[in-house]
Amino acid sequence: MTPRIDAHQHFWRYRAEDYPWIGAGMDVLGQDKLPADLQPILHDHRIAATIAVQARSGREETRFLLGLAKDTPWIAGVVGWENLAVADLGERLSEWHAGDKLVGFRHQVQDEADARAFLESTDFNRGVALLQAKNYVYDVLVFEHQLADTQVFCARHDKHWLVLDHLGKPALREFAKDDAALKRWKKELLALGKLPHVACKLSGLVTEADWQTGLQQNDYEHIRICLDTALEAFGPQRLMFGSDWPVCLLAASYDKVAAVIADWAESNLGQDEQASLWGGTAVRCYGIAA
């Protein structure tokens, strides 16, 4: 039986200088977030394993997460960080010990001043190609306005799985104003979903809404629209659950995040399809032992 997996969560030992993205009004994140904090929550939700994803740039982040994974059996995989544009990337990758739980890499492309130029960089693309040759997943972190360039990038790298984080971060704050933002994001997501080597994490949506004023019923209605669109784009076999804990706590509890996905899944997916969402897709994409 495939274990239930949270395919996207984070850990850190908090220092403000290491996490400049944790700003004013984010006090819930400005403290250590470690496996002991998450474990009882996972137990309550019958989550047997997680994938810990980088939250800062630097090789020390990868070492930190792998160290936690070594001492924590239920951390099944680590998506770390590496400078993929360096000429000696092959040597750097070989430094990670065989048997480590390193399953992939990620960079905060969303924060690049020119995402298109970054995604078109010869050195970066050479690095991603090497990752795929070595069966590492690349997690794609972009905003919705960067999805068109992301589609071109993803089409270029079809030798292994690419995973879109947070549904490409739809601009949920704008959905209530008019439907232009929804239409724009939906068009790009459907195009990206046509690439069969791209999977999608149902994660991070609560913090794309206006969490500072508290999520309202219409926010959850917009989230369900996003989930419906993701199903249309990727089908039930390329979706995976991710809590985005502890970042989700800015807007909603782990319980609420999981409940939103569970309620939607029960209404839209068969039992086998739900099993894929809650673990099967993560096992298949990241090569995690079931």
Rank of each mutant, 00 (worst) to 15 (best):
K134I: 04
R106F: 03
H107G: 15
S57M: 14
C200R: 13
A265M: 02
A129L: 02
R173H: 13
S276D: 14
D263V: 08
L192P: 03
C200M: 12
K187V: 14
T150D: 09
N125S: 11
V283Y: 01
N135K: 09
W12F: 11
V152W: 13
V53K: 06
G279H: 06
A55K: 03
V206W: 00
K256A: 12
T229Y: 04
L239M: 01
A16N: 10
I51R: 12
Y286V: 04
T281V: 04
L189S: 00
V78T: 01
Q271G: 13
D263A: 11
G99I: 14
H145N: 15
Y220W: 11
G127H: 00
H107Q: 11
V78F: 07
W211R: 06
G168D: 05
L68N: 02
A262G: 13
L277V: 04
P40M: 04
K177A: 11
G23Y: 04
R92G: 09
K169W: 03
V86K: 11
Q146G: 09
K169F: 06
E82L: 08
L119N: 01
V109T: 11
A290Q: 09
N125R: 05
I22M: 12
P40N: 05
V206A: 04
K256W: 14
R238K: 07
V78P: 00
A113K: 09
H166C: 00
A176Q: 10
F143R: 15
E120N: 15
V152S: 15
H166R: 07
V257G: 01
A282Q: 12
S243P: 00
I22K: 06
A171D: 13
Q237P: 07
F11E: 08
H8P: 07
H107D: 10
H43L: 11
W278K: 02
W211P: 03
A24V: 14
E17L: 06
G270T: 10
M240K: 01
N125A: 05
A113I: 15
A176E: 13
C200E: 09
G242K: 02
D272A: 14
A289K: 15
L141S: 05
D32A: 05
R106T: 05
R173V: 10
H166L: 10
G77Y: 05
L66A: 08
F241C: 05
H107V: 12
T2Q: 12
A148E: 15
L119K: 03
H157Q: 05
